[in-house]
């Protein structure tokens, strides 16, 4: 079967016509859309459905793949604020780093980032029935990682040095954060607790790590065998003890 490929030159283009072109290409049955010369255009793949693959060359603007439901977006460069925001399904692969609030309120699909992410990564990710969002960060993450997390899987591989995140999992009430190496207790926020990674857990995350390694051409074996810290909610009701009734 022939792969239908559409190329769009985004140079100097506003995001609305750009997104219209991407949408039209996908509606017309394109399997792959290549967007070149992207510089700061926001909302690429926003609300997009289907199963096409969008290749983004350059630095896209914020809210990449927001509300996206199905497609794959591959960014050959860094991304901005909140890629994967409130995303439902599909996959975002970023070959660079990304800004703050990555995967904010994401409900399903995968966001893979080779480099680092900023503050509040994975904030309020949540899961529902078969939908379980996965965020994997190759580099390090910043403070308030997994804040308010209500579901899903967040892995930080810390491939390039020491994790900077503090206040990890503040208000977490669902899901799990798995960080390669040890995490100092002082870096955990109230409401989060460390538990050992069981063999069962290891089996569960293995396919995710393999997929991540595959996407970025890394050797999965050292990652599969590494030590990990698993962080889960101390309670499903982090704020229950704060209130009384009139």
């Amino acid at each position: 079967m022939m792969v239908k490929l559409v190329t769009i030159d985004a140079k100097g283009m506003h995001y609305t016509p750009l997104n219209q072109q991407v949408r039209r290409a996908v509606e017309d049955g394109a399997d792959e859309v290549v967007v070149q010369n992207v510089l700061g255009q926001r909302f690429i793949g926003d609300g997009l459905k289907g199963d096409a693959t969008i290749h983004v060359y350059g630095v896209p603007g914020g809210d990449l793949a927001m509300f996206m439901s199905g497609p794959t977006v591959i960014v050959h460069g860094n991304a901005e604020h909140a890629p994967g925001n409130t995303m439902d399904a599909g996959k975002v692969v970023i070959h660079g780093s990304a800004g703050d609030a990555v995967a904010h309120s994401m409900r399903g699909g995968k966001v893979f980032i080779r480099g680092n992410i900023g503050y509040r990564g994975g904030i309020h990710m949540k899961q529902y029935e078969a939908q379980r969002p996965i965020l994997v960060v190759g580099g390090s993450a910043q403070t308030f990682l997994g804040e308010y997390m209500a579901g899903g899987l967040l892995i930080v591989l810390d491939l390039d040095g020491a994790m900077k995140a503090r206040g990890i999992g503040s208000g977490i009430h669902g899901g799990e954060i798995i960080i390669r190496g040890d995490v100092d207790d002082a870096c955990l926020a109230a409401g989060a607790k460390k538990v050992p990674l069981t063999d069962e857990d290891r089996r569960r995350i293995a396919p995710v790590i393999r997929e991540f390694a595959g996407d970025f051409g890394l050797d999965p074996e050292p990652l599969l065998n590494a030590d990990y810290t698993r962080i889960v909610p101390a309670s499903a009701r982090p704020f229950a003890g704060k209130y009384t009734w009139e």
Binding site: G40, V59, G61, E80, G99, N116, Q142
Partner: peptide
Amino acid sequence: SEEAAIRAMEPNVESIMM
């Protein structure tokens, strides 16, 4: 505020950090 602005001025920027 945004990386794109740096690249608009200097497409060959050598390092980017946050």
